[in-house]
Amino acid sequence: VSHTAETTRIAAGTRQAVALADAELKGAQPVFNLALSHVGHHQTRNRGTIGGSVSLGEPAAEMPATAVALGAEIEIHSRDRGVRLVKAEEFYLGPYMTVLEPDELVTAIHYPRWGSDAITVFREVAQRPGDFALVGLVGRVRVAQGKIAEAGLAWFGMGPTPIKARQAEAALIGASVSDIDTRAIAELAVADTDPFTDHHATAHYRRTVGRRIFGRTLGEALNIQQAAA
């Protein structure tokens, strides 16, 4: 793990448990740290790697959605063609499908540093701790002079890939914190999703729960920010 003023680079082979215990990484990437604490169990995190979780492309997993929400870039190596960087939101094509070519390997993930004034947004609903999420939301919102200056939000468990809440992000940017209608923003956020029905939950259930957790989580985060201002 290495840091610059603008980014944090995490090597693909970094164990999840090692990353979770890294105090400097927690300070630089609090959303990443919080999301990682919900990945599997401590036994699996001792063996699982950051690159493995990101590159697998499980649509209900925390790490792919976190990379998408924070605007991360995936560092990819080919023996013959060298290195390329791919935006996380362009990396996933479908469940367990990515843009990786047969001769390529993920070697690192680069996460932008949002600054200490950014608000952490995270919540997931799962049947048991450590299970894949039925519905999950992750991201950051940065406030400047009482208005939303930047927003990066993504869903997991709400479609075939991690899904950016683009309409919600667009509606938030420039809005006064005191005037935000979290229910209306939640409707926009859910409109971007493409949930599925399986033996765990229906698409209707996922939309309903997603709407609730988005409004509640965003509202709580903004209330904390206002209290600290």
Rank of each mutant, 00 (worst) to 15 (best):
R79W: 01
D80Q: 12
R81H: 14
G82M: 08
R84Y: 06
L85W: 10
L85K: 13
V86L: 12
V86Y: 05
V86N: 07
K87M: 13
E89P: 10
E90L: 10
G94T: 13
G94A: 14
G94N: 15
G94D: 15
G94Y: 10
Y96N: 12
M97L: 15
M97F: 12
L100I: 10
E104S: 03
E104G: 04
A108D: 01
A108T: 02
H110S: 14
Y111D: 04
Y111A: 03
P112N: 07
P112I: 06
R113M: 07
R113H: 09
W114Q: 04
W114C: 05
G115V: 02
S116Q: 14
A118T: 00
I119L: 05
T120G: 01
F122I: 13
R123T: 11
A126K: 14
Q127H: 12
R128C: 09
P129Y: 12
G130W: 04
D131F: 04
A133K: 02
G139A: 09
G139I: 06
R140Q: 01
V141M: 02
V141W: 01
V143H: 02
A144D: 03
A144Q: 03
A144Y: 03
Q145P: 01
K147V: 08
K147S: 06
A149M: 01
A149S: 09
E150C: 03
A151E: 02
A151V: 03
A151L: 05
G152R: 04
L153Q: 02
A154H: 13
A154T: 13
W155N: 08
W155T: 12
G159T: 02
G159Q: 05
G159C: 09
P160Y: 11
P160F: 07
T161P: 09
T161E: 08
P162Y: 14
K164M: 14
R166C: 02
E169R: 07
E169F: 03
A171V: 00
L172E: 02
L172S: 01
I173F: 06
I173T: 07
G174L: 12
A175S: 15
A175M: 13
S176V: 00
S176C: 05
V177H: 04
V177N: 07
D179L: 11
I180E: 06
I180Y: 08
D181Y: 07
T182F: 06
R183S: 11
R183C: 06
A184L: 09
A186H: 04
L188N: 13
L188D: 09
L188K: 15
L188Y: 13
V190D: 06
A191E: 14
T193H: 15
T193Y: 11
P195Y: 01
P195S: 11
A201Y: 05
A201H: 08
T202Q: 12
T202A: 09
A203K: 00
Y205I: 08
R206Q: 06
T208S: 15
V209S: 03
R212G: 06
R212D: 10
G215S: 03
R216F: 13
T217A: 07
T217S: 10
L218A: 02
